[in-house]
Protein backbone atom coordinates (compact mmCIF):
# COMPACT_ATOMS: atom_id res chain seq x y z
CA UNK A 1 0.00 0.00 0.00
CA UNK A 2 3.07 2.26 0.17
CA UNK A 3 2.60 3.04 -3.48
CA UNK A 4 -0.46 5.09 -2.47
CA UNK A 5 1.85 7.60 -0.85
CA UNK A 6 3.25 8.33 -4.32
CA UNK A 7 0.23 7.80 -6.53
CA UNK A 8 -2.21 10.01 -4.66
CA UNK A 9 0.00 13.12 -4.76
CA UNK A 10 0.77 12.39 -8.40
CA UNK A 11 -2.88 12.10 -9.36
CA UNK A 12 -3.72 15.26 -7.43
CA UNK A 13 -0.86 17.08 -9.11
CA UNK A 14 -1.98 16.02 -12.57
CA UNK A 15 -5.55 17.01 -11.77
CA UNK A 16 -4.22 20.33 -10.55
CA UNK A 17 -2.49 20.95 -13.87
CA UNK A 18 -5.80 20.34 -15.62
CA UNK A 19 -7.55 22.74 -13.28
CA UNK A 20 -4.86 25.38 -13.78
CA UNK A 21 -5.19 25.03 -17.54
CA UNK A 22 -8.97 25.43 -17.27
CA UNK A 23 -8.61 28.54 -15.10
CA UNK A 24 -6.13 30.01 -17.57
CA UNK A 25 -8.34 29.33 -20.59
CA UNK A 26 -11.30 30.88 -18.80
CA UNK A 27 -9.33 33.98 -17.75
CA UNK A 28 -8.07 34.50 -21.29
CA UNK A 29 -11.71 34.62 -22.46
CA UNK A 30 -11.62 31.49 -24.56
CA UNK A 31 -15.25 30.59 -23.87
CA UNK A 32 -16.72 33.92 -24.98
CA UNK A 33 -17.28 33.02 -28.61
CA UNK A 34 -17.30 29.23 -29.10
CA UNK A 35 -18.95 29.47 -32.51
CA UNK A 36 -16.47 32.04 -33.78
CA UNK A 37 -13.48 29.99 -32.61
CA UNK A 38 -14.85 26.88 -34.30
CA UNK A 39 -14.96 28.83 -37.55
CA UNK A 40 -11.66 30.67 -37.20
CA UNK A 41 -9.63 27.46 -37.64
CA UNK A 42 -10.93 27.35 -41.21
CA UNK A 43 -9.43 30.76 -41.87
CA UNK A 44 -6.42 30.74 -44.19
CA UNK A 45 -5.06 34.12 -43.08
CA UNK A 46 -2.18 32.95 -40.88
CA UNK A 47 -1.47 29.57 -42.45
CA UNK A 48 2.01 30.46 -43.74
CA UNK A 49 3.34 32.58 -40.93
CA UNK A 50 2.14 33.31 -37.40
CA UNK A 51 0.05 36.37 -36.61
CA UNK A 52 2.49 39.17 -35.72
Amino acid sequence: MDILGTLIPVSLFLGGIGLAAFVWSLKSKQYDDPQGDANRILNKDWDDHPKP
Partner: peptide, 28 residues
Protein backbone atom coordinates in the same frame (compact mmCIF):
# COMPACT_ATOMS: atom_id res chain seq x y z
CA UNK B 1 -22.18 33.28 -39.96
CA UNK B 2 -19.03 31.68 -41.35
CA UNK B 3 -15.24 31.75 -41.38
CA UNK B 4 -15.14 33.79 -44.57
CA UNK B 5 -17.48 36.38 -43.03
CA UNK B 6 -15.13 36.79 -40.05
CA UNK B 7 -12.04 37.46 -42.13
CA UNK B 8 -13.90 39.68 -44.60
CA UNK B 9 -15.34 41.87 -41.85
CA UNK B 10 -12.20 42.01 -39.71
CA UNK B 11 -9.93 42.55 -42.70
CA UNK B 12 -12.20 45.19 -44.19
CA UNK B 13 -12.45 47.13 -40.95
CA UNK B 14 -8.75 46.96 -40.16
CA UNK B 15 -7.89 48.52 -43.50
CA UNK B 16 -9.91 51.63 -42.60
CA UNK B 17 -7.90 54.61 -41.41
CA UNK B 18 -8.10 55.09 -37.65
CA UNK B 19 -9.20 51.53 -36.85
CA UNK B 20 -6.75 49.85 -34.45
CA UNK B 21 -8.38 46.44 -34.21
CA UNK B 22 -11.66 44.71 -34.95
CA UNK B 23 -12.86 41.43 -33.51
CA UNK B 24 -15.99 39.57 -34.60
CA UNK B 25 -17.97 37.60 -32.02
CA UNK B 26 -19.87 35.03 -34.06
CA UNK B 27 -21.87 33.70 -31.10
CA UNK B 28 -23.37 37.13 -30.45
Amino acid sequence: HCAACISTVEGGLQRLPGVRSARVNLTL
